[in-house]
């Protein structure tokens, strides 16, 4: 609402009286609050919480923890370690593969680089399609095509990442100082040289930052992809749950937690050095 114009109405015989919003704007704002409240209560009525299950929840939770403890440490070297490495491979390969499509699409999408609305829109179409499909759905598709396994996971992660990396890199390119671009054009540099020496140095920190962030997200996402058979730790997790091997489930969850934490630390440190 910050962009709405303020109104000044003149009081007779005094200084002009200033109000942030006009009467119509104020009414509209109250209507928005009202709609939000109404939506909250409407949805509360439709979720149909079963009270018995709700009262029972703490007991069930305690029960699950007792079944999970002690964790099945022995399963780590035999099954979980390998699956965890698969998950990391899926995330890393998927992220790298996504760059092959994301970089060209980002360039085509950036209006200050490609001055053709048609090409901008075509690039935007692919970027949005990639983002609008969840990686789990991509994984289901690729498991159907290539069969269960790591390859399906890699492709699912890659296709989902294209939209994310492409859109954010494209925005970084659109935010560069155009004065520098103009200056290098004026030296007689070719379009490719202008791209490499004016756009790239300015967008580079954002690019690496986005790629690292996406890799971080992909590690977490690829841990889940196994649930639909796309390889990695998720497969182990799914099997253990189906067989009620709760100690093994606990071990797998702990492994995921520790890996995600370590990656978070790594990404934060690398990013600090980049900028």
């Amino acid at each position: 609402m910050n962009s709405s114009s303020a109104s000044i109405s003149t009081k007779t015989g005094g200084n002009p009286k200033w109000q942030r919003f006009t009467a119509a704007e104020r009414t509209a704002r109250y209507m928005v609050y009202l709609v939000v409240l109404a939506a909250f209560f409407a949805s509360l009525r439709t979720v149909e919480i079963i009270p018995e299950f709700l009262y029972d929840a703490p007991e069930q939770l305690a029960d699950m923890f007792t079944r999970m403890w002690p964790m099945d440490f022995a399963s780590y070297p035999t099954t979980i370690h390998g699956a965890m490495l698969d998950t990391l491979h899926i995330a890393t390969l998927g992220t790298l593969l996504s760059l092959l499509l994301a970089i060209p699409l980002a360039l085509l999408n950036a209006r200050n680089i490609v001055q053709s609305l048609w090409l901008n829109w075509i690039a935007k179409f692919f970027l949005v399609s990639s983002r609008s499909v969840n990686s789990l759905i991509w994984a289901l598709l690729f498991v159907a095509i290539f069969g269960p396994g790591v390859l399906a996971g890699v492709l699912a992660v890659a296709l989902r990442s294209v939209g994310f990396v492409g859109k954010l890199f494209s925005e970084a390119l659109e935010e560069v100082n155009m004065g520098t671009v103009e200056a290098l054009k004026a030296t007689g540099a070719s379009p490719a040289s202008v791209l490499l020496k004016a756009y790239w140095p300015q967008a580079k920190p954002a690019f690496y930052s986005v790629v690292l962030f996406r890799w971080d997200i992909n590690v977490r996402e690829s841990a889940v992809l196994g649930l639909v058979g796309a390889g990695g730790i998720g497969v182990v997790l799914n099997d253990a749950m189906n067989l009620f091997q709760w100690p093994k489930v606990a071990m797998a969850l702990t492994a995921i937690f520790v890996v995600v934490l370590l990656i978070e630390l790594l990404v934060v440190n690398v990013r600090k050095r980049l900028i």
């Binding site: 100082n177 004065g179 520098t180 103009e182 007689g188 791209l195 490499l196």
Partner: peptide, 27 residues
């Protein structure tokens, strides 16, 4: 506004004056 490439060294900024005389690959 000078329009230098802020993140490059001073020397490299001066060298960008030669971009018109070299290929993008060499740049």
């Amino acid at each position: 506004e000078y329009n230098l490439v802020e993140r490059l060294s001073v020397l490299e900024n001066v060298l960008t004056g030669r971009l018109g005389y070299m290929s993008a690959w060499n740049a």
